[in-house]
Design a binder for these strands. Structure first.
Length: 273
DNA sequence: AGCCAGGACAAGT
DNA sequence: ACTTGTCATGGC
């Protein structure tokens, strides 16, 4: 049972926004729907319910937070032209892009994205969500009802492996702590990363213990909104092997690579079990 | 029950 | 430069 909105706001510029696909395509781990399709989520210490009503996307966020959520949902970006570019580049991509139309690459909090994708390695999505939820409930701040913020890096950096044992996230624990410590000690700084070239940023990020190519790319795409990144996981490997030439180079997709990757991942996971 | 999950890493070819 | 074993845990 969710506390339903006292006040609701109709979001504008949502022509290419499908909230179900956006929240369930695998890019984020903190949005859940109730049985009527109302999604509840938390980002950067704020929460809202969001749903579809008469072809409008409606939410009950605090009024002052509406600009934040519009940015979070990436509503200012032109997805029509990106999607059209992707569809025109390859037959299989056309299929994936049609299927995934409405997905937006969220502008997530960098630390949350980094930490979440460290947890994601060699793990399944239901368990990733469970671990992230436990992390927030144990170490985040209560926002309202049973909703908690994602604990900041300073908070995590103050903890020990033993403190994190309730997460049951195994060998990933020390990776989370190393990432938190690097942020907290300013060895790694998100603003500085954004000033670096792709290659420089990529290598800097991989200095974190337990962060390899895949997690680094996920963090760059979902946490830093570097839209040309193209993370390759087990699903992407299968899809690439089955539908692309061996020497396929995602850089031909330019700044559309990240979105294309998300379309492929979502299609493959939904249809190519 | 057993395989596998949005991997990383060291060690061995 | 590729292949393999190992890591911790639980979803299906």
């Amino acid at each position: 049972m969710k506390a339903v909105a006292k006040e609701k706001y109709i979001l504008t510029d949502t022509k290419n926004l499908d909230i179900k696909k956006t929240f369930e395509c695998g890019q984020c781990f903190r949005w859940d729907a109730d049985n009527s399709g109302i999604y509840t989520g938390v980002a950067s210490g704020r929460s809202m319910n969001i749903w579809v009503e008469k072809s409008n996307v409606v939410c009950d966020a605090n009024k002052v937070d509406i600009p934040f959520w519009k940015t979070y949902l990436d509503l200012d970006a032109d997805y029509a032209s990106s999607t059209s570019f992707i569809k025109n580049s390859d037959e299989y991509l056309k299929l994936c892009a049609s299927y995934g139309n409405g997905i937006r690459i969220l502008r997530q909090d960098p630390w949350e994205a980094l930490c979440s994708f460290i947890i994601s390695q060699c793990n399944n999505i239901p368990r990733i969500k469970k671990i992230v939820k436990t992390l927030c409930e144990n170490f985040g701040n209560n926002i309202c009802d049973d909703l908690y913020s994602f604990p900041d890096s300073h908070k995590i950096a103050s903890l020990s492996e033993k403190d994190l044992s309730p997460l049951r996230c195994g060998y990933r624990t020390e990776y989370i702590l190393d990432a938190a410590r690097r942020i907290d000690e300013c060895i790694l700084d998100f603003d500085e990363l954004q000033k670096l070239s792709d290659k420089e940023a990529f290598n800097k990020i991989k200095e974190i213990k337990g962060v390899g190519d895949k997690v680094a790319n996920c963090f760059m795409l979902y946490g830093l909104h570097r839209m040309d990144r193209f993370p390759i996981d087990t699903w992407m490997k299968k899809a690439l092997k089955a539908h692309f030439p061996k020497d396929f180079d995602p850089t031909v997709l330019g700044s559309n690579a990240g979105l294309a990757q998300q379309y492929i991942f979502y299609y493959a996971r939904s249809n190519e079990k």
